[in-house]
């Protein structure tokens, strides 16, 4: 028997497969397709202090081997999450993580402290990297000083596992990772989407209402892998790797690069059963390579 269990600095996962926020709704959307309890964890939709309508349509454009989105954190706000959504989903026998976003530090503090009260939410993922909101969002995650200041403020009010989601839209991601580690982050997840754009040459118009949006899918995988590898060498807290994972082979690549766990995002749109297939695929890989514990593969890239 292979051991897929992962310990992320106190947060224990039955396997390394999680879902990426914004691609998995609140889990319920996938009930028809999979048994969510088989996953290591789910990251529910980005949640903000107040209700957000999100950006105007069109919010999505297909690109070669990927897609751009500009959803803009559409959600009904943290109170609605705590009162209406949480009671509906807390029965899942997996780790439910809430992705917390905000426009100001006060927003993050308020939202994180409300989530802190929910028994069945063992961790939050601090989103300092959303490229689709005008104020705050990614701006917090693109400088060491502002990233550190949000993490420091949230750390004071949030006493469970604090995961911080990093933006790839920076010069040196490992510097940001070090800054959030220094302020008490328990883990980092990377990468959020890459800022991109798409144009319709015929109409001379942008394809997204916001002109620019976040690029995801297999087209970003090489960038994501490189960043996981860089950050792995820079920090000591666990890394959750994501960016274009479509199958178990991709997931293993991220683990070899240094990720202790992985998130599956855009692939959920194409195959709503992909997550459980990746769990099975990782198991199969471990048997084939005679790996006892998944943790033995973390950062096990052989350079020479």
């Amino acid at each position: 028997m292979v051991n897929l269990e992962v310990n992320l600095k106190g947060l224990s996962l039955k396997n390394p497969v999680m879902t990426a926020s914004g691609t998995f709704g609140y889990g319920e959307e996938f009930d028809d397709f999979i048994d969510i309890d088989r996953l290591g964890g789910i990251l529910v939709k980005g949640t903000t202090r107040h209700h957000r309508e999100g950006n105007p349509y069109p919010r999505m454009a297909e690109t070669p081997s990927g897609m751009l989105n500009a959803v803009g954190l559409q959600n009904k706000g943290v109170e609605n999450f705590c009162n209406d959504i949480y009671p509906r989903i807390k029965h899942y026998n997996t780790n439910i993580l809430v992705n917390v976003s905000g426009s100001t530090i006060e927003d993050y503090i308020e939202t994180a402290s409300m989530i802190n009260e929910l028994d069945r939410i063992p961790a939050i993922e601090l989103n300092i990297s959303c490229p689709n909101v005008k104020e705050g969002g990614m701006a917090f995650g693109t400088s060491c000083v502002s990233a550190a200041s949000v993490v420091k403020a949230v750390r004071k009010v949030y006493n469970k596992h604090l995961m911080v989601k990093l933006s790839p839209n920076v010069t040196d991601i490992s510097e940001i990772a070090k800054a959030v580690e220094a302020e008490g982050a328990d883990s980092v997840s990377l990468i959020n989407t890459l800022l991109g754009m798409a144009i319709d040459a015929e109409s001379r118009r942008p394809l997204l209402s916001t002109i620019t949006g976040g690029l995801s899918g297999p087209c970003v995988k090489p960038v994501a892998l490189r960043m996981v590898w860089q950050v792995f060498r820079a920090i000591n807290i666990p890394i959750i790797g994501l960016g274009g994972i479509m199958n178990a082979k991709d997931a293993i690549e991220f683990i070899l690069a240094g990720a202790s766990a992985i998130q599956i995002g855009t692939a959920n749109f194409i195959d709503p059963q992909v997550t459980v297939k990746v769990v099975e695929g990782i198991k199969e890989y471990m048997i084939r390579h005679k790996v006892q514990n998944i943790s033995d593969l973390v950062g096990a890239l052989e350079i020479q």
């Binding site: 309508e53 349509y57 999505m60 855009t266």
Partner: peptide
């Protein structure tokens, strides 16, 4: 008709404005 990614309510890409929000 709208461009969609998932088709089952997970991606929130295909919204249309209605009198009660997107």
């Amino acid at each position: 008709e709208n461009t969609m990614a998932c088709g089952f309510g997970a991606c929130l890409c295909c919204v249309t404005p209605t009198k009660t929000g997107n």
